[in-house]
C-alpha cells in the first residue's frame, strides 16, 4: 500500500508542469525516503531528478518500495483537474496496475477521484556522482527564465561564462549577438532578489537553449534557481520545492568538434 497526501496540492501540479514537456514516460519511485523520479529526455541530452521527501507530506505511507510507471502528459491531464487550493492524495494498492489521484476542495464539499493506468517502463537509472562545482550561481528564477527566453530569440545556444566580473550569458545568431552580464548583488532588501556567485575557477560552457527554456517551466516552484557548473560536466539547474525537496535538471554541454 502506498499513499501520500499533500495539502498544498498546487505544488504537485507545478512539479508536473515542470517535467512533462521534457520527459514523456517516467518511473516514480516510492520509498520511505519519499516520492522521487529520475528520467532522461528522449534525446538523452538532459536528465531530470525529482525528490519530494516523505516528511514534507501531511500523510505518507509506503509499506514497501514501489515503482510506478506513468505517462507524464496523462498524469498532468489528471492533476489539471485538481483546483489550485485542493488537497491531493495519491494512492496505489500492491499488485494493481492503476494509481488513484484524489482531490478534495478546501471546504471538503467536492471530492473527486481519477484512476490512471500504470505502465511498464524500461528506464535506465544513472548514478550521479557528487561533484565539487567550479562555479555556483544563485539568482532569481524569474530573471534566469527571462534571460533564457530573450536569448532564444537571438540564437539556439547559450554560452555561460563565470568570471570574477560575474556571469555572462551570450548568444549569437543570423540577426546578431547578445550578451547579458549579471553581477553579484547580495545587498538587496529581499533575499530572493539576490544574485550570489561562488567561483573557485572561471568556467565557460555552451548549452542548447531549447533545454534551458524547458527547465524554466519550474520557475513557479521557487523564487531562486541555483546553476552549478564545472568544465566538461553537465550543468545542474536546481529549483527547491517548498522545503520538501527539489527538481534538478542536468544538461550535457555542447563541445567544439
Amino acid at each position: 500500500m502506498f499513499e501520500l497526501r499533500l495539502v498544498q496540492g498546487s505544488l504537485l501540479k507545478k512539479v508536473l508542469e515542470s517535467i512533462k514537456d521534457l520527459v514523456n514516460d517516467a518511473n516514480f519511485d516510492c520509498s520511505s525516503t519519499g516520492f522521487s523520479l529520475q528520467a532522461m529526455d528522449s534525446s538523452h541530452v538532459a536528465l531530470v531528478a525529482l525528490l519530494l521527501r516523505s516528511e514534507g507530506f501531511e500523510h505518507y505511507r509506503c509499506d514497501r518500495n514501489l515503482t510506478m510507471g506513468m505517462n507524464l502528459a496523462n498524469m498532468a491531464k489528471m492533476l489539471k483537474c485538481a483546483g489550485n487550493d485542493d488537497i491531493i492524495t495519491i494512492k496505489a494498492d500492491d499488485g494493481t496496475d492503476t494509481v488513484t489521484f484524489m482531490f478534495e476542495s478546501p471546504s471538503q464539499d467536492k471530492i473527486s477521484d481519477f484512476e490512471m493506468k500504470l505502465m511498464d517502463i524500461d528506464s535506465e537509472h544513472l548514478g550521479i556522482p557528487e561533484a565539487e562545482y567550479e562555479a555556483i550561481i544563485r539568482m532569481p528564477s524569474a530573471e534566469f527564465a527571462r534571460i533564457c527566453r530573450d536569448l532564444s530569440s537571438i540564437g539556439d545556444t547559450v554560452v555561460i561564462s563565470v568570471t570574477k566580473e560575474g556571469v555572462r550569458f551570450s548568444a549569437r545568431g543570423d540577426i546578431g549577438a547578445a550578451n547579458i552580464v549579471c553581477r553579484q548583488n547580495a545587498t538587496v532588501d529581499k533575499p530572493e532578489d539576490a544574485t550570489i556567485i561562488e567561483m573557485q575557477e572561471p568556467v565557460t560552457l555552451t548549452f542548447a537553449l531549447r533545454y534551458m527554456n524547458s527547465f524554466t517551466k519550474a520557475t513557479p516552484l521557487a523564487e531562486q534557481v541555483t546553476i552549478s557548473m564545472s568544465s566538461d560536466l553537465p550543468v545542474v539547474v536546481e529549483y527547491k520545492v517548498a522545503g520538501m525537496g527539489y527538481i534538478r535538471y542536468y544538461l550535457a554541454p555542447k563541445i567544439e568538434e
Binding site: 532522461m40 538523452h44 541530452v45 538532459a46 536528465l47 535506465e124 537509472h125 544513472l126 548514478g127 550521479i128 556522482p129 545556444t157 555552451t206 542548447a208 560536466l233 553537465p234 542536468y250 544538461l251 550535457a252 554541454p253 555542447k254 563541445i255 567544439e256 568538434e257
Partner: peptide, 14 residues
C-alpha cells in the same frame, strides 16, 4: 560547429 554531448557520457549506469 558544436557537438551535443549525451548525459550518459558523464553518469554511470546503476
Amino acid at each position: 560547429p558544436c557537438l551535443q554531448r549525451k548525459i550518459f557520457e558523464y553518469f554511470n549506469s546503476n
